[in-house]
Amino acid sequence: MSFRRLQSWLTGPRLLTLGIVCALAWSLSRVDWQQPIAHTGGGAAALKVLLALFPPDLTPEFLSICVVASWHTLAYAVAGMSLAVALGLPLGILASGVLAVSSDGHNPRRWTLMVAVRFLLAAMRSVHELVWALLFVAAVGLSPMAAILAMAIPYAGILGRIYAEQLQVAPPEPIAALRTTGASPLRVLLYGYIPMALPDLLSYTFYRLECGIRAAAIMSFVGIDGIGFQIELSLADLLFRQVWTLLIFLVVLVVAVDWWSSRVRRSMAY
């Protein structure tokens, strides 16, 4: 096979597959195969953990701890999400560029602002919420507010980006009609873009709420009460029955929120 034929054969999907195989092989080569994969006695420990599922710890005292932890997780998730929406919506509007265009063309100052906000959103979402949390804990100390802020920053970054994309795909005809009436960019936004994009905006926000629950659960890693914190405590005390109970609470909470958000999204499908 000549090089040229090889080159034409190795395009698109085949090249990508080759790339994926090479990447996997490389990543396996980084693993330290000298040391055993499992701890000595790891298998026995795994068995012990599994057997603790029958039954999980269902004593009333522990269940009340689980309920309180679940409520904390939900409350932090909702607070973090609401802050993320409050930050993400204005940033998303600025990043979408809908305010930068009016009937008489581009506004260069607002155009620059749009590009700057896009960079800001990218920076906010490039750092994981727990890394933000650790930085905040080091900077201002441990408090629920620090955890909520840490969660709100990357979530606002993601929401802002998606909101911007959703505003941009609004159908152009009604927007153009509004513009011809001489409406200002702000009015076009309020009466054109936002009403048309509202189902998408809400749908994505509800979708993110499910991720927010998981984020809030692990936010307890920095020491805020919640399901993750309780799991950490129980694991440290080797109380695997409690771990199972907490995992069941976490799964139920996430599945419930997922069910709610998919109900909402289906009700808006058009």
Binding site: S27, V31, P36, I37, A38, H39, G42, A45, V49, L235
Partner: peptide, 8 residues
Amino acid sequence: FFLSPGII
């Protein structure tokens, strides 16, 4: 808990 530290 079961696996030794590393990438895996």
